[in-house]
Amino acid sequence: MQRSGTTRRKPFPIHIIVFLAPAVIIYTAFMIFPLLDSLRLSLYAPGESGEYVFVGLNNYQRLLTEPLWAPRFFGALKNNLVFFAIHMLVQNPIGLFLASLLSSQFIKGRAIYRTLIFTPTVLSVVLVGFIWRLILNPLWGISGDILGLFGIENQPWLGLETTALPVLSLVSVWQYVGIPMMLFLAALISIPDELIEAARVDGATAWHVFWKIKFPLILPTVGIVAVLTFVGNFNAFDLIYTTQRATAGPNFATDILGTFFYRTFFGIQLQPGNPTMGATIAGMMLLIILAGVLLYLFTFQRRLLKMDIQL
């Protein structure tokens, strides 16, 4: 005890450095440094001789005001908000609904349902994108058959400007609904049984028990699911790239910030890539994501402080 106590008081013994070095070096070199380098690059522009020249916030100003950039940026931002809204309004309520069914002790085969419903979540977005491209292809007619049962007329869903984005959002919901389901399920299961039973004895209906007792208790999870959805959605790229290519057609109707960033950075067809404007878009995405995360931290701050003490 005494000996270990004195070892710990020495300033930076060598073994602590050895333990920390690999993680700190890899993380700093391949994550923090590139992020800062990207942000720095967003303040530069290629000069006449091809050398990068410092231009301050000029790139951001161009992105937000120039006719060449602003419509694309705000279009992608708007589409991304729609993408996020559909996840919040469809994915998370369905996840909560499935979780509330699966948390009931009376349902037999809960583990099997849970495992099967989660399956699409483990597939790569590339596969999911192509699977749904086939299903929605009017040539194969699967979507026509199924929608016909409900009296809905089949359409080239991915080819129309009005439907492409909502339909692709729903494909993403189909894939990822397992994540909110699992998080809600964990929260619902950890509610003490006595609380529910006490309410039942008092004559509360299942509906009441859910909204008056369970839902307030899982509110922290609702917050976590919302912020995870936000970060994931504003960082999305693969699904749109797989189904609609980097052009995010038709006519940019499915262009989100991730595809806009990729297109700008790498260029497309005849348009050459533009690393500094790409870095500028990444800088804006970082700002948007940080704003969302900070909003969450301040809304749920009290809860988070409590968690910190527990850790």
Binding site: L20, M31, P34, V231, A279
Partner: peptide
């Protein structure tokens, strides 16, 4: 327990919420 323990923990936790894709321009250069 060493000086900067909490700070280092926070520094390493930064990456939980910041998607690494946003550093792609810098990563490719590196």
């Amino acid at each position: 327990r060493f000086p900067g323990n909490t700070l280092l923990g926070l520094y390493l936790a930064l990456g939980i919420m910041v998607p690494i894709r946003l550093g792609t321009v810098g990563i490719l250069r590196l």
